[in-house]
């Protein structure tokens, strides 16, 4: 007789020259699993009768995901963290934040490092030159921003 060949949700045997549009099968997702073990199969009333409405309510709950993101992560539904497009978006956001951060730091430096600030701190002459350089640069950067 033919043996069934469940591979635990793994790759099928035919794997030659896979076109790029074809996604690798994921391990059983919880959504796939619950869809099947709660909704399908042999449904006979057991001795322990749980009101079917309870289960349907639960299924609806799952479908509507009245469950927090934290809970989803706990359940192992966290693949978006590894999704390249999503994580590259996350990376972009991270970059933007870093740039913003750098700009702010630059302005802060300019404000603190301006002639008056430096004088209070009695810096050596070489630092004053440095401070002037920063001071010169800042308005230019602001003009550039204004032009955009």
């Amino acid at each position: 007789m033919t043996e069934s060949q469940y591979g635990g949700g793994m790759m099928p045997a035919g794997r030659q020259a896979r076109p790029p549009a074809y996604d690798r099968p994921q391990p059983d997702s919880l959504a796939d699993l619950l869809e099947r073990v709660l909704d399908k199969g042999v449904v006979l009333a057991g001795d322990i009768r749980v009101n079917l409405l309870d289960i349907e309510l639960l299924t609806i709950k799952i479908r509507l995901l009245l469950v927090s993101v934290d809970k989803a992560v706990e359940m192992g539904i966290d693949w978006w963290r590894h999704d390249p497009s999503l994580s590259s978006k996350a990376a972009e956001e991270h970059d933007a934040l870093q740039q913003e951060n750098a700009r702010l730091r630059e302005r802060l430096d300019a404000l603190e490092g301006g002639p008056s600030g430096r004088q209070d701190r009695l810096e050596p002459a070489s630092s004053d030159q440095d401070a002037e350089r920063v001071d010169d640069e800042t308005p230019a950067a602001e003009t550039e921003r204004a032009q955009r």
């Binding site: 069934s4 591979g7 076109p19 549009a21 074809y22 996604d23 099968p25 399908k40």
Partner: peptide
Amino acid sequence: VGELGADLPESRLELGGPWPPYSFATL
């Protein structure tokens, strides 16, 4: 599934399984 997926520029096909026949051995 691979061939069909290759013909769908805007979509992707995801293959899962094999599983026991949950959706078919129903009663």
